[in-house]
Nucleic acid binder design. Structure first.
Length: 724
DNA sequence: GACCTGCTGATTTTT
DNA sequence: TCAGCAGGTC
């Protein structure tokens, strides 16, 4: 193990101060690339050297991957045995772990199921149907988002019901109530419950809280700017006794407001802890001077921020290249061209990333890379664990642990087909309530309880129930390794056979094989493998964790997914008004500032070279629309940019005029563009989202704050263009 | 109850 | 453009 002095000598004065800081609340404002992870790891190692016991340390990170990385680094600093004892992970996974241990106190079993977004939405859809409310009245996905938002802000259904005024709010309140009731009946929690139930546990059981306060005497929180209200409250509770709360973050990198993150948590830390010490890490070790200067110039346009001055001793570096492209295919071609050049000059593929605002933008880029046979990894998109066949298999597995989970039952009851439709399900539901039986019990007694359905269906249901029972027992008693047992079980459900036989479904079949393979990997790498732990890991896995660390592949991902990472060469694509910033974000200052922070995060990922690009046209909803360069481009100092029009882009014009010219070139006389603010005589002020057609058929999709999205024929709707 | 077809809405970002 | 869903038919 390295000597303490040696490690401290590698740090700058501010970093050293943070690492060696004594007890009490500590706020570290860590600018992009300022060695945040290093400081966190060293500080934990420093505490351990000072004699703090590993089990007294809790480190909360934003992704499980970040936690793994930190643990890896710690292995080099302290004895692996001690590093392993640390509790390190996301809020969600750490709290899920606490809840497993304490579940009975809350009326749950330790085998409770964790519902992901899709599960929750599905449950809400079922409930709405039962309430006799159509999807057009209240969209299940929108309702899920709103309920999640309420839960993040710790607003219970009772509180919400009391304040509900409009009919829509009253329906939502009733849905919220039914949803909570059903979650409990299903022995299930959604993502938000993992936080809320932990808080409830602590508040209702002071003895339990005291136990965890004693245990976690030193608490670290990474990416503190992206914590929400519930996380904030949980931290207040946990840290109340020892007050050794060390939070690290950068308000300039807060990009999860839409998910309930509350930037006030970091802005108000010193108000919450008046005796808190503030340390600023302002030296950037990552980027060139030019990249940093451009990023800094951009972020200065935000009003809401903690004052700081990032600087670097790194070389000046090259100009930021701005690729002006004709459309998204041309953009992909240009990006490909420069990737090729990077590779030719010796940059490893793994040091290159292409970033974009929305997942949909990855397609043309993927195609270009595929054709050029350049290896790439795609982060996010439709995740492996979201695929239908995988979710079905996981639902079968969840039922082994938690047969109360109705969402999983409904997923698998007719997959493979067992002759069960809506009518049979309704009978099942009635039998459950009438005889006060569990779903599994009703299935087992299908022959006497479900007389109204076909005999074959009844037999199928009883066979399914027997299967679940048998493997439930096998799971607890069997000496067969978990992965083999699961393989046998999935075979017995008929799910594997369903896809194996069908030529068209080979991909699904292979995905299921891959699932078993990941389970085998888990079984072999874990000291005490359990289905419970495996399912939890899968449920709380973030997108970025699925991607194998590949040194020789270009990374494609959203700007959000890039948080916390760094690359030698970064491309940020689609810098167009309406895309970055997104059209709907231009309506409020807060949202616009978050879009700006998002671009800031992207730019500061780059070590040596940064490429920005925009397209003059882009396909959207099956039509090519005209795009205007992002306003953010004008916020970057022109002397740091080198505009490069592609050969197929509209005629080359100098950059500054390019920004303005391309806004009008080829454009209809109305001067509208996606992202433009317009006034409608009836609907009021709105934002243009898309344009199509010309002349008589010129149409615009406009989003109005209260009315929603409208398709307007401009011949009739006399829109007035508002200038900012 | 299964299958087919036509329609609609999606493109925000994710633990 | 396309996937997923609702509604209708067999």
């Amino acid at each position: 193990m390295p000597a303490v002095e040696e490690l401290l000598s590698q740090l700058n004065p501010q970093q050293r101060e943070a690492v060696t800081f004594g007890d009490g609340p500590l706020l570290i404002i860590a600018g992009a690339g300022s060695g945040k992870t290093r400081v966190l790891t060293y500080r934990i190692a420093y505490l351990l050297w000072r004699g703090v016991r590993a089990e007294h340390v809790l480190a909360l990170t934003f992704t499980n991957k970040a936690a793994e990385e930190m643990r890896e680094r710690l292995f080099g600093l302290v004895e692996p045995e001690r590093a392993r004892q640390l509790w390190m992970g996301t809020f969600h996974s750490i709290f899920a772990r606490i809840l497993r241990l304490e579940a009975p106190r809350l009326g749950y079993t330790p085998d409770y199921t964790i519902y992901d977004t899709e599960d929750s939405t599905g449950l809400l859809r079922t409930l709405l149907r039962q309430m006799g409310i159509g999807n057009h009245v209240l969209d299940p996905a929108a309702a899920r988002h709103q309920i999640s938002h309420l839960k993040n802000r710790m607003c219970s259904w009772q509180e919400f019901a009391a304040s509900a005024r409009t009919p829509r709010e009253r329906i939502l309140a009733e849905l919220y109530r039914a949803y909570e009731e059903q979650l409990r009946a299903n022995n299930a929690m959604d993502f938000d419950d993992l936080l809320l139930n932990t808080i409830r546990l602590f508040q209702a059981h002071p003895d339990v809280l005291a136990r965890y306060q004693e245990r976690f005497r030193y608490i670290f929180v990474d990416e503190y700017q992206d914590t929400n209200r519930a996380q904030y409250v949980a931290l207040q509770l946990l840290a109340a006794r020892y007050r050794n709360l060390c939070v690290v973050g950068d308000d300039a990198q807060s990009i999860y407001r839409w998910r309930g993150a509350d930037i006030r948590n970091i802005l108000d830390f010193q108000r919450d802890y008046p005796d808190a010490t503030l340390i600023r890490l302002e030296q950037n070790y990552r980027s060139t001077q030019r990249i940093l200067a451009a990023a800094d110039a951009l972020i200065r346009h935000n009003q809401q921020q903690i004052p700081k001055r990032l600087w670097t001793a790194n070389p000046e570096g090259e100009l930021i290249r701005l690729l002006i492209c004709a459309d998204e295919r041309d953009e992909a071609a240009q990006v490909l061209h420069y990737i090729q050049r990077e590779l030719d000059s010796g940059t490893p593929a793994g040091a290159i990333a292409v970033l974009y605002r929305t997942n949909a933008q990855s397609q043309p880029l993927e195609e270009a890379l595929r054709r050029a046979r350049i290896p790439y990894v795609l982060v996010g998109g439709i995740s492996f664990y979201q695929r239908k066949e995988i979710k079905d298999a996981l639902a079968y597995l969840r039922l082994l642990l938690n047969p109360a989970d109705m969402v999983s039952w409904l997923r698998v009851i007719n997959e493979p087909p067992r002759g069960i439709g809506a009518a049979t399900l309704e009978q099942l539901r009635q039998a459950m309530h009438q005889h006060n039986l569990s779903f599994l019990e009703v299935l087992e007694h299908a022959d006497t309880l479900l007389t109204g359905i076909r005999r074959s269906a009844r037999e199928n249901l009883q066979a399914l129930a027997a299967l679940i029972r048998r493997y439930r027992e096998a799971l607890h008693s069997s000496a067969v390794p978990l992965d083999l047992l699961v393989l046998e079980y999935l075979e017995a459900t008929g799910l594997l056979a369903l896809y194996r036989q069908d030529e068209q479904e080979q991909e699904r079949y292979m995905n299921l094989e891959r699932l078993i393979a990941t389970l085998s990997e888990y079984v072999q790498s874990s000291p005490a493998p359990s289905l419970r732990e495996y399912l939890q890991q899968v449920a709380l896995m973030s997108e970025s964790e699925l991607v194998p660390d590949s040194a020789d592949a270009v990374t494609l991902m959203t700007l959000h997914a890039a948080k916390g990472l760094e690359f030698s060469v970064v491309f940020i694509t689609g810098l167009e008004q309406g895309l970055l910033p997104l059209a709907r974000a231009t309506e409020s200052r807060e949202e616009l500032e978050e879009e700006r922070r998002l671009l800031y995060v992207g730019m500061t990922r780059a070590r040596e070279r940064l490429y920005l690009s925009y397209a003059q046209h882009r396909w959207r909803w099956g039509e090519s629309i005209l795009c205007r360069p992002s306003d953010f481009l004008q916020e970057l100092p022109p002397e740091l940019l080198e505009p490069i029009p592609s050969p197929t882009a509209a005629p080359g014009v100098p950059f500054q005029s390019a920004l303005r010219a391309s806004a009008t070139e080829g454009m209809e006389e109305d001067g509208l563009y996606p992202g433009a603010r317009v006034r409608h005589p009836v609907f009021g002020v709105g934002t243009v989202e898309a344009l199509s057609g010309s002349g008589e058929n010129r149409r615009a999709v406009v989003r109005f704050p209260h009315v929603g999205r409208k398709l307007l024929l401009l011949r009739y709707a006399r829109l007035q263009l508002l200038h900012r």
